[in-house]
Computed example of a mutant assay.
Amino acid sequence: MEIHYKIIGPLLMLLACIHLVFPGYFKWKEELSSLSLVNKQMMVIHTFFIALMLFLMGLLCFTSSFDLVHTRLGKTIALGLGIFWAIRLYIQFFGYSSKLWKGKKFETAMHILFSILWVYLSTVFFITALL
């Protein structure tokens, strides 16, 4: 199981870094211009904290794989992470409209790729918690 954490760690850290391009890729300057200052800042600040948590989660997985797999506290953390990623998987299908990706090659590929990633993360964390 530890090998999965050594894989998950860098994947989550990479996912955190991808958040750096969100403002430019999603054209936030133009898209968010009609929002109030507080809503604009919430988008940017919450995205920063999501990225930070993803990075720290990845760092934890990469540097503490033994503890996550073999200690009671690690299994409890894994259960929490499993719940988190299972909810994220649910949101992938029921929180976002399929209009965002259906009929669009790149968006459909990303939808499938991230769905697979959320399944992988949920599965690894739940298996760890249950073993």
Rank of each mutant, 00 (worst) to 15 (best):
E2C: 09
E2W: 02
E2L: 10
E2M: 15
I7K: 08
I7Y: 10
P10M: 11
L12D: 04
L12C: 07
L12Q: 08
M13L: 07
L15Q: 12
A16C: 06
H19F: 11
L20K: 00
V21H: 05
F22I: 08
P23K: 12
G24Q: 06
G24N: 05
Y25M: 12
F26D: 08
W28Y: 12
L32C: 04
S34F: 12
S36A: 12
N39M: 11
N39A: 13
K40M: 01
M42T: 14
V44I: 12
V44K: 13
H46R: 14
H46F: 13
F48M: 10
I50A: 10
A51N: 02
L54R: 01
F55H: 01
L59N: 02
L59T: 00
C61Q: 05
F62T: 00
F62A: 10
S64K: 13
S65Y: 11
F66V: 14
F66A: 14
D67H: 12
L68T: 03
H70L: 01
H70E: 09
T71V: 05
R72D: 14
L73S: 07
L73H: 02
G74L: 02
G74E: 05
K75T: 00
A78W: 06
L79C: 11
L81K: 01
G82W: 03
W85V: 01
R88I: 12
L89R: 03
L89M: 13
Y90C: 10
Y90S: 06
I91S: 07
Q92R: 15
F93P: 06
F94A: 13
G95C: 09
S97I: 08
K99W: 07
K99G: 00
W101N: 07
K102W: 06
K102G: 00
K104H: 12
K105I: 15
T108K: 05
A109S: 11
M110T: 09
M110Q: 12
L113N: 05
F114C: 03
I116H: 01
L117K: 06
W118N: 14
W118Y: 15
Y120P: 00
Y120V: 03
T123C: 08
F125E: 02
T128G: 07
A129R: 07
L131E: 15
